[in-house]
Amino acid sequence: MSPEFPYLPDEGVVVVQRGPEPGGVGGAYRAFGETLRGLKTTFARIIEGPVTIQYPEEKTPVYPRFRGRHKLHKFEDTGLEKCVGCSLCAAACPADCIRVVAAENDPDDRVSAGERYAEVYEINLARCIFCGYCEVACPFDAITMGHEYELADYNREDLVFTKEMLLAEPVERTPLRREGE
C-alpha cells in the first residue's frame, strides 16, 4: 500500500547509505579503473595486428579434429586403395548419405587389398551432417574427415562426391589452428 502524498519524514522512509562523494584518487579510480583494465587487453592486441581474416583470400584456420570434407586413402607403398567396399560407413551413417557398390578385385589389376573393392563410392555432401561416424566405423582407416569446409556449389548433383573426387589430393589446404591459439 503506497503511502499518501505528501508523506511526512520519519514515516515509511528508508534511509539509504550513499557512496563517497566524487573526486580524489579513489574517485578517479572508481570512474576509470574498469575501463583501463579493458583497455589493457585492447592495447595488448593492437600490437598483434589486425585479426580480420581476409576470407576467401585467406582461410579460416580449423582445429586438428575439425570434421570437414571426407577423404579416401591409398596405401603409400602399394598404391592400393584402403577401402575394400565393406559398406560399414554406409551402415553407420545417420544421414544415409553414403552409397557403396562393391565389386570383385581382379588379381591382375588390383584396386584394393582384399577380394573386394568399392566400385562406386559416393557421399552426398548435401545430406552429410559431418558427424564422423563413417570414420569411426571404417575398419581400415580408409576414410577420414579432412579439413576442407568450402563445399558450396551451384548444383545439388555436384555435391555428390564420387570415389575419384574423394581419393584425389585436396586442392585447398586449410591452415591448422594450434592449441591455445
Binding site: 586413402h73 596405401f75 587389398a113 581400415f140 582407416d141 577420414t144
Partner: peptide, 8 residues
C-alpha cells in the same frame, strides 16, 4: 596384417 597408413 596389412599395415595401417598414417591417418588424417
Amino acid at each position: 596384417p596389412v599395415p595401417v597408413g598414417a591417418a588424417g
